[in-house]
């Protein structure tokens, strides 16, 4: 009886020992050298593996930054949109390099084709995929640049930062947005753009990408940019350019003076997170107040100014402050 136990222990022990020896040599022989810096850099990264930096995952980004740091002594072109400046500063510290601060960005939806502004003329039936619908038809309301409202951007977002608003049929970005750019790629109509987040989240942008002439664009959508170039003329900072009947505001030059918003005849230019302005004589009420005061009425083109979820709260806070003062 004892023999059996002894034999079993010896046999299994021997097998174990043999395997350990083999493993030891295999591990030695096939060892791959990796720069320990890569691990250190990776630790600093958010581990979201979103691909927003252009590399397949955080590990690949870490490898690329370490390589770039060694070869070019600069991290130019390498930036983690999710982690933003803080993370890149950390990465810079690990690698012993100075990293230029970048302005935080956010995804912005440049379409205002709500059912009121851009009424549907036909009905789409089929799979809920913008990419498919884009290949099939020009859009329910006739504007071939409009948001299709089927949520490819929502599916693409890894951060729960973009949702469809069932009332407007348009996506809404909230403050979880890391500007990774996944939605920008997912949108078949190039409606989403990454723009500077702006001081206090304040932004001004043209909420339209319709490159048609004014008349056909306006025919389909009340708030389409008609390329009238009023905004271009009023802008003192050369921030606005018009190409193929479409205005574009360069966020690097824009000083958020809001002049363009006032002159836009179709309310295609949006301002978000600004304080409501005082009424003027020639303009009964500013666009913002209209939007906040009343629900959009069918006959008037009123954009939904509040796009960022937390903006609503900001407004409330500000309102409270005013009330408190009074």
């Amino acid at each position: 009886m004892d023999d059996i136990i002894l034999i079993a222990v010896a046999a299994l022990g021997g097998v174990g020992l043999l395997a350990a020896v083999i493993l030891f040599f295999v591990a030695k022989k096939f060892k791959v050298y990796e720069d320990p810096l890569i691990d250190e850099v990776e630790e600093k990264l958010p581990a979201a593996n979103c691909g927003g930096c252009g590399f397949p995952g955080c590990r690949a980004f870490a490898e690329a930054t370490v390589k770039a740091a060694k070869e070019t002594k600069s991290l130019e072109g390498h930036s983690c949109p999710v982690g933003g400046n803080d993370v890149m500063q950390d990465v810079g510290k690990v690698l012993g390099l100075e990293v230029e601060a970048m302005a935080p960005m956010i995804a912005v939806i440049r379409c205002n084709g709500t059912p009121i502004n851009h009424p549907a003329k036909v009905k789409f039936e089929g799979v809920t995929s913008c990419a498919f619908a884009h290949g099939l038809h020009g859009g329910e309301g006739g504007c071939q640049y409009s948001c299709l409202g089927l949520g490819d951007c929502v599916d693409a977002c890894d951060f729960d930062a973009i949702h469809m608003n069932p009332e407007t049929g348009l996506p809404v970005v909230n403050d979880k947005c890391t500007a990774c750019g996944a939605c920008v790629i997912a949108c078949p109509r190039d409606i989403i753009e990454l723009r500077k987040k702006g001081p206090k989240d304040r932004r001004i942008f043209v909420s339209c990408v319709n490159a048609e002439k004014g008349a056909p664009a306006k025919k389909n959508c009340q708030t389409a940019c008609i390329g009238c170039s009023k905004c271009e003329k009023v802008c003192k900072f050369d921030a606005i350019t018009i190409t193929s009947f479409l205005a574009y505001i360069n966020f690097e030059n824009c000083t958020l003076c809001r002049k363009c918003v006032e002159v836009c005849p179709t309310s295609a230019i949006w301002e978000v997170n600004f304080k409501p302005r005082k009424p003027k004589a020639d303009r009964p009420a500013s666009v913002v107040e209209k939007a906040t005061a009343t629900k959009a009425t069918p006959e008037k083109p009123i954009p939904l100014t509040i796009k960022v979820d937390n903006a609503q709260e900001d407004f409330k806070k500000e309102d409270n402050k005013i009330e408190n003062k009074e």
Binding site: G126, V127, S129, A131, F132, G135, L136
Partner: peptide, 12 residues
């Protein structure tokens, strides 16, 4: 809607 998905897949 098999063909809808097939078109989408073919496209991509």
């Amino acid at each position: 809607p098999l063909l809808d998905y097939l078109r989408l897949g073919k496209n991509k």
